[in-house]
Design a protein around this nucleic acid. Structure first.
Lengths: 343, 343
DNA sequence: TATAATATTTTACGCGCGTAAAATATTTAT
DNA sequence: ATAAATATTTTACGCGCGTAAAATATTATA
């Protein structure tokens, strides 16, 4: 630190003996200048502690180096974990992630996109709410800004979509449950907000029919996103009313399963695949807490490594090319069975 | 929308018939202009869809209207929930929140503060990692930017601190547990990263002694932030080794309790306050999932409404005054007992 | 060492807006 | 209706940096 304060790049050019345009080049890409000048600049940086003004930078650049990242709800540890992974990938690529949560609300989702519009991101990774999303609003945004959807698909919106192959994953766990005991009843919300839920329902039906079993749906009431609560209430009722035709229940997702598990416990039902158990319960998603439920939850782990890397790679490619995708890419990744205590 | 595209405020001044300086005033505070001109501007806005460039704005303003918000880890639903509350309060005050997660790492915590420095926030709300924090780094930041700490205190750092009165809350639950059964053993990590953990430990000891009981600590190994896993492993060992002197365990936080609950289940121990139960387990924090554990978790709910509002109010006051606090404010809020099935 | 290739410097302009001061218009009070 | 108070417009400058083109310096190639 010296006495004279470095206010801007010009000041820093003066004390470092490097011209301002060269400094500008350096800050945009340290390796775009000669190795010797790079060393000189970095030596000067250590002495004077100067940082370019991000606002001035972004005002003048043709394109910012920020990538927007919108998830349905950060309160859900599942999405919080994914967001963290994506942030890491974005940083590694030399971009700055801006993370926003839609708080399970379509209004907030649109607000988030508006906020992003204001900061002119180079691209956006969006896990939309799904059925609840304002399709026209999201589509309008995606038209103006390179947008890759993940987790939930919105037909035809965005440059690409990456998600899970629900047909495969649900088939996998239905198959396992049928082989290891009674065929599963499917436990879900009557009117899910998430498109994956619909895919999982039909995947369940298809898998059951293929195995020669009669599909059984138990659909609980409740709207909103308090899945655990909905699973608990609906599960309590279903158990009381003996709605489950077999002793095995496949839940549309882990959060519902956590609620159902809680309901079963309250009813004094022993859950698990042991001999003395009254009920088997399985979930889907490998929620961070599913390892610690009582009993631990047998579930499906989505291949979120692949989904994440492909999503980031794709948005980076779009940014690099500088033009929008001519055809909408879409890929589904396979899940794996996570065998635990509950089924 | 008209054919001519509005690129900047000057263009918009032309089509709206309002001078640019007046428009600037309007965008900084819509009520600072005459009501009639406000209407004219808003009518024009509906026709032309113009938004000021945030980068140009922030480059020229003496102060931005963003408030940084840093939490230890968004993957923890507890902090994700708090972050959401704080975001709402900040928005309501007319500021823009920028949410960052330290991912439980002191390096990331410093990185976050550096990122915030770059965007020159008007103020910052920081829930530090605690013992793991780079104290010098955080202190240096807090010196340059109005900073209010919450959740975990760092001695003398920041303009204010708001958190929970662990002495009160732990006293409350120890008291309850003693009245309703055997006195609790305290279950915690040997070397906690969080300062609250130390306060809770001594609060437990003090409360026990006051009630004439012998404090019993069961301290488990493990570092890092996988509290559930640590609670599970340590809990399994403690149960096997019969380390719990009584049938009642008070956990330092809910996440440890969730792990212990899982360990007890695996051991076939029935947890709860019923007659046939072998163990009572209580937690602290009212973690979002504590309602759905098996059995549901008796715990302490921190007064996060108060902590949140006071924190935001304080940082806003600092911003308003335009000068730093002359004396460091600190306040602790009382928790309440949440009676559920586990104890 | 001469030449070509590459980096850097110089010079100059523009980005979109905040902000200040003076001149002018509008509203409110008398 | 007139004067005073308040809003708006005009004019002008500055913020900190990107970027382009031409001139110059440095390095690599032969």
């Amino acid at each position: 630190m010296t006495v004279a304060k470095i206010k801007n790049m010009e000041d820093f050019a003066a004390v470092s003996g490097i011209s301002r345009p060269t400094l500008s080049k350096y800050f945009n890409d340290p390796n775009s200048v000669r190795a010797t000048t790079k060393l000189r600049i970095e030596a000067a940086l250590k002495q004077h502690d100067y940082r370019p003004n991000v606002y001035a930078i972004n005002q003048n650049r043709r394109q910012t180096r920020t990538i927007g990242l919108v998830v349905p709800n950060l309160t859900d540890p599942f999405f919080a974990g994914i967001a963290r992974t994506l942030e890491g990938l974005i940083l590694r690529a030399g971009f700055t992630p801006v993370l926003l949560s839609s708080h399970d609300g379509p209004d907030q989702e649109l607000d988030n996109l508006e906020s992003l519009r204001a900061i002119k991101p180079a691209g956006v990774l969006l896990a939309p709410l799904g059925r609840a999303s304002d399709l026209a609003g999201v589509a309008a945004f995606a038209q103006d800004c390179p947008t890759v959807l993940f987790d939930s698909n919105l037909d035809g919106i965005g440059d690409a979509f990456f998600g899970s192959d629900n047909r495969q994953s649900v088939g996998l766990i239905v198959d396992y449950l049928c082989r290891s005991g009674e065929p599963p009843v499917f436990f879900e919300m009557k009117t899910p907000i998430n498109p994956n839920a619909y895919k999982r329902r039909s995947a369940y039906i298809a898998a059951m029919e293929q195995l020669g079993h009669d599909p059984q749906l138990v659909q609980v009431e409740g709207d909103g996103w308090g899945f655990e609560e909905i699973g608990f209430r609906g599960g309590s009722k279903a158990l009381t009313d003996r709605q489950f035709k077999t002793n095995t229940v496949l839940c549309s997702n882990d959060r519902l399963a956590i609620g159902l598990l809680s309901a079963a416990f309250e009813k004094g039902l022993r859950v698990g695949r042991g001999a003395g158990s009254a009920l088997r319960i399985a979930g889907h998603d490998d929620h961070p807490f599913s390892k610690f439920t009582c009993p631990s939850l047998t579930t499906i782990s989505q291949d979120y490594d692949s989904i994440s890397t492909r999503s980031v790679e794709t948005v980076l490619a779009l940014i690099e090319r500088g033009e929008r995708a001519q055809s909408r890419e879409a890929a589904l990744f396979s899940g794996t069975l996570v065998l635990r205590g509950s089924a």
